[in-house]
Every structure is written in C-alpha cells, then in structure tokens.
Write a protein that binds this DNA or RNA. Structure first.
Lengths: 184, 184
DNA sequence: CTTAAATTTTAACCTAGGTTAAAATCGTCT
DNA sequence: AGACGATTTTAACCTAGGTTAAAATTTAAG
C-alpha cells in the first residue's frame, strides 16, 4: 500500500490531519468491541491482529503489519462497527495515523482521495481473497511454506506459535510439519 | 450492493455503457486464464464461481451470485489479471454489464463513480473477510448452518454437492453433518 | 555461568473430515 | 407406472491435524 498514486499537491491537503504515536511492545492499537477509528501507517515495528476464542480463550492471529504497511482493523474501520479483534504492537513501534472522520472528509472533498480509498479497499480485498484461497485450497504445509516465502523477515523475529496461529493450526501441528519438511 | 449512494444524475452518465446479455444454464461468464473484463448486475438467475483442482479435476465453488447482486470475478477484474476461476450461469439468467475500461473511465471522470468504486471494493473486502473468518473459526457444521441461514433461497434451488463444495468439504461429509443435525 | 522462564518438540491418543465405492433416493421423461 | 440418470446417503477405512502433557531446547536475567 502506498500513496504513490497521488500527487504531492493532493496529498498535501491531508497535512495537519496526521499524528504520530509511539507504541510499546504489547500496547493496543485497537481492542475487541471498540470501533477502529484510525488508519495507521507503520513507520517502524510490527503489529498483529488476533481473535480470542470464546470456548478456550486461545488467541488466533489474523494478520501481521510490518514497517511501511498500513495498520488498521479494516472491516471495523470501513464499516465503523465494533471490532471482533485485538490489534497490538508486537514490538516497540512508531505509527502515523489519521482519524476516520478526517479520512471520510478527504474522500468527500477530493476525488484523488476517494481514489486512494478505492485502491485501499481493493488491496484489502486482494489480501482477504488470497487468505480465503489459501485456506480453501492449500494444506497447512503449503500455507507454512508460502508464509515463509512471503514473510522472510517475520519468520526470524516472532515466535513460531504466532505463525501456527496465523496458519490456523496448533503448535504441535506446525512442529510436525517442520519435522516432515526437514526429513525431506 | 446497490447504486443507491449515487444520484440519478450521476448514474445517468453511464447510460449507453451498459449492455444486456441472456445466459443459458451452464454458459460461461468468465473462464480460467481469462481476464475478467465485465462488471455485471444479475437481473435474473444464479451464477457461481468455481475453481478446478489440478490434482483431480474436482470443482470447488467459491461464490454464488443471485438476482440483484453484482456478478464479477473481483480479483481478476480489479487487478486485470488472468482469473483462477470459472464463472458460469447455474440457471438461465439475465445480466446487464459494463466494460472494465468504461468503468475506469467513469471512475476517472466522476467523483461519484470513484465513490461507487470504493464502496464496491469495500463490500468485496467485507465478503472476503467474512469468508476468511468462517474458514478460520468455524467448524464445517457451523458453516453449513450459517449458509442455510444466509441463503435460504439457494438451499432449495441448487444441488447439495454445490453447497458442500462451497463449504470446503466433500459430499459425504455434508451428509454426515446433516445426519448429525437431524439426530439432535 | 546458573537458573528460571519462554518456546519448541515429542509422544500418545482422539476426531473431523477425506476417500472410495456401493446403496438408496429422487426427478423426469415416456 | 417404469426406467434412466442425477443426487444423496451410507459404510468402511484412512489421514491430517487437534489435544494434552511431558520433555527438550532456547533465551533472558541475575
């Protein structure tokens, strides 16, 4: 995600609407039942969005956000409905963010920003469709291999149980898969 | 999905860009490796998008489109890349459609249409996120119950094997689930 | 270094759903 | 009604991944 489709002049009308915030590891970006009010751009650090299962309190990771990516609980943000998820910093982090109301105002007053909003939503849908496809068509082993390929940076920085959680499988299951792969 | 967020005047600039097509049951809307060039609005009938597994040629349904919904292979359409899927009429059907190039032209020349494009993409992302969530958090039994709830019309009109395919399970598995539910 | 805590792997057993093929049903056509 | 094809269920067996708890390993702290 980037702002490259926008001229500097168009971007400049958002000057003054952006704020900076520093997050400590573990600090919340947005919490469950809270409406996500901010679209953030990660300047440094890593965030994750996760869901807490009602039956056993287990956390399941939905998404990771690294530096130079947007961080936002998208469904909650665009629909302005309470979030099902928690989003929090996995490391100390720095984010510049804009308020939903300000963004909507930009959308209304600027064709270029409305365009940005479309591209943003289209990229979000790409991400979500990819995830759906991977769950529908790929085995856990393939999902793991693709994750390693697509997030070579994350793989060394975060505990494996965060990855198994993201892949939709249990810790022991990921261990089995890794063993299987090593044996090859 | 609707055009209700647009004034008649804004909508009118698209007059002349829409065409009507009648589909026979089984006729293709778009095929695998074809770039999806059209955004369609289903006036009557039902379409489905499905994927053919390489290993065994088995079809897996991705999505159904009923009357008064848009039909489009969204990822292929917005990115203008070859489609992984087939989309075809499950019944005789009637569709009004617009060409990608014309839609992009509307986006460029009209703020209202760019807004429509954003809402379209946001709704697509909502659908995709919902699907991802259902696969990540719900058992096949829950997915089936939700499908019945959300598509009460489809459930009587299409064979069960299309539904099991959509749920990401095999036919015998859906039969077991239905048996289990009856026994309750 | 040593110890405690966090992480990862292993093991043993369990379950949902996959696979294959053979019944049952159901629909439709004559 | 009878018969064919399509659809759905059943059955028997198989496998990936779940579950639980313990063991091994790694990391961080003192």
């Amino acid at each position: 995600m980037s702002f490259s489709s926008m001229t500097l002049e168009d971007f400049s009308i958002s000057e003054g609407l952006w704020q900076t915030k520093y997050y400590k590891k573990g600090e919340a970006y947005n919490s469950v039942r809270q409406v996500c009010k901010f679209l953030g751009f990660v300047e440094a650090g890593v965030f994750r969005t996760y869901h807490i299962e009602e039956k056993n309190g287990e956390e399941k990771n939905i998404f990771f956000y690294s530096a130079n990516q947007l961080v936002v609980s998208f469904a909650s943000f665009i629909n302005q409905v309470p979030c099902h998820y928690h989003t929090e910093a996995m490391t100390d982090a720095k984010v510049v963010f804009i308020h939903y109301d300000d963004l909507i105002h930009l959308y209304k007053t600027s064709h270029a920003w409305e365009h940005f909003g479309r591209i943003l939503a289209e990229q979000a849908s790409n991400i979500a469709f990819d995830r759906t496809e991977s769950l529908l068509f790929q085995s856990a082993e393939m999902r793991y291999l693709n994750f390693v390929k697509q997030h070579p940076n994350l793989i060394n920085d975060i505990p494996l149980y965060h990855i198994s959680s993201y892949l939709g499988i249990q810790g022991p299951s990921l261990s089995r898969i890794r063993k299987r792969l090593l044996d090859k």
